[in-house]
């Protein structure tokens, strides 16, 4: 094979190989927008519970992505979860903005939602968002619900269902109807 043809083929190969790398970085990995959005400022938000929030989770305001969660840590003194937020520089938020942790969908990933307030002073780099709302824990909700249900059953029971056994409606009924009253 002639030297020039080999060079030609090698040139083509290297060119399309590099084009593939560029494609992966730009079109698949979205390098352009990340470099555009790399400039920004840092905010800090403290939550009693950050739930399943992960680094790089989106920060949204009115559903629009305005930044990313940079890192997550624990304050050793107050035992609060500290989320550092990276907000893209062209978005400004008032000082009384509320940060809350939401879940997208029922099983989706968690993100930080920013709800802008009405203050005329804007948050600056390294500021802290004062008003925060923790992640909703499904287990807590369920246990609260169960607890409140368990509490209201004895309150409504005396009127509706005859709990004491001597009412003698039928011998089989009491254990089936009031299993909670047995102990």
């Amino acid at each position: 094979m002639n030297r020039k043809i080999i060079d030609l083929w090698v040139g083509i190969f290297v060119a399309i190989g590099l084009a593939a790398l560029v494609f992966l970085a730009l079109k698949v990995g979205n390098l352009l927008t990340t470099s555009e959005q790399r400039t920004g400022y840092q905010l800090e938000a403290r939550f009693d519970n950050i739930g399943n929030l992960k680094p790089r989770a989106p920060v949204k305001s009115a559903g629009v992505v305005v930044g990313r969660v940079e890192s997550i840590g624990l304050d050793d003194k107050t035992y609060e979860g500290v989320a550092r937020l990276h907000i893209y520089s062209h978005h400004q938020f008032p000082r009384d903005t509320i940060a809350a942790i939401f879940t997208s969908g029922l099983l989706g990933e968690q993100f930080v939602g920013l709800e802008a307030g009405g203050d005329s002073v804007m948050l600056k780099d390294e500021d802290r968002i004062r008003k925060t709302q923790s992640a909703v824990q499904l287990e807590k909700l369920i246990s609260q619900f169960m607890f409140s249900k368990a509490q209201e059953t004895p309150a409504s029971a005396p009127g509706a269902v005859p709990t004491p056994a001597p009412s003698a409606a039928s011998p089989a009924a009491p254990p089936a109807v009031t299993p909670g009253a047995k102990p």
Partner: peptide, 10 residues
Amino acid sequence: QAAVDWRYDV
């Protein structure tokens, strides 16, 4: 594009 990070993945 939202899920693939150029540095972490690519």
